[in-house]
Simulated scan of single mutants.
Amino acid sequence: MLTPLPSFMLGHEVVVEPYAGASAYGPRYGAPITVACFLDQQTRLVRNPAGQEVTSTSTFYARPGLVCPAESRVTLPDGRVTRVIARLDRSGGGMPTPDHVEVQLL
């Protein structure tokens, strides 16, 4: 059973432009979507999809189902534009904990 993050935890909004691949003119992005989330602006070491350690400056947590692959462009509430390092599905595994998506940002 899916137990999504409760609304009272989603006090921030970010704008996500999903990465759609490379073109001759640079990266392509999908249409921007506004995502209600919990934003944690904390610097920490994380691993990118290739397994390398990189520094993440922010992480946001949103409801399951968010399409936000690595390299997607994200605009934070303060106007800073950054990119996605990794998107991780976090499931409670049937326990009564909120299921969510964790998105690590450069």
Rank of each mutant, 00 (worst) to 15 (best):
V46S: 05
L76K: 12
V15S: 12
Y61D: 01
P4Y: 05
T3Y: 01
Y25C: 10
Y61Q: 04
T57I: 11
Q52N: 09
T59W: 01
Y19W: 15
G65E: 13
V54C: 14
A62P: 08
M9V: 07
L76S: 08
R44S: 09
E71S: 11
T57P: 05
G26H: 07
Y19Q: 03
S56Y: 11
P49K: 02
P69N: 08
F60D: 00
T34F: 04
P27Y: 00
A36S: 15
S56I: 00
V46W: 00
V14Y: 07
F38W: 09
T55L: 15
E13Q: 15
P49R: 02
G26R: 12
T75E: 13
E53M: 04
G26A: 06
G30I: 00
P49M: 02
T43Q: 13
V46L: 04
P69F: 05
C37S: 11
V15E: 15
L10D: 06
T59K: 04
A31M: 05
S23N: 03
R28G: 04
I33P: 00
R44I: 09
N48G: 06
D40V: 06
E71T: 10
L10M: 12
L2D: 14
T43D: 13
A20L: 10
P49V: 01
Y25L: 11
V74I: 05
A24F: 13
Y61M: 08
Q41I: 14
Q41G: 08
E53A: 08
C37W: 03
R73H: 06
M9Y: 01
V46M: 11
Y19V: 03
P77L: 01
Q52M: 05
G11I: 14
S56K: 07
L10V: 06
V35Y: 09
T59H: 02
V35W: 13
R63K: 13
F60V: 01
R63L: 09
A62C: 15
Q52T: 08
T59Y: 01
V15P: 07
A24M: 12
P18R: 04
V46K: 04
V67M: 14
L2S: 13
S58T: 14
P18Q: 07
S72Q: 08
Q42P: 08
M9D: 01
G26T: 12
L10C: 07
G26Y: 12
E13V: 12
Y19S: 00
V46E: 02
L2E: 10
P4M: 02
A22R: 10
R63I: 04
V35T: 05
C37T: 09
Y25G: 09
T57R: 14
V54W: 11
I33V: 15
P18N: 10
R28N: 09
S7I: 08
V35A: 03
P77G: 03
S58V: 11
S23Q: 08
V46F: 05
A50C: 01
L45E: 15
G65H: 08
L66E: 10
Y61S: 05
M9F: 10
L5V: 02
E13Y: 04
M9I: 01
P32A: 00
V35Q: 11
P49W: 03
V67W: 15
G51E: 10
V67E: 15
L2P: 13
V46I: 10
P27V: 07
L76D: 04
F8P: 07
A50E: 12
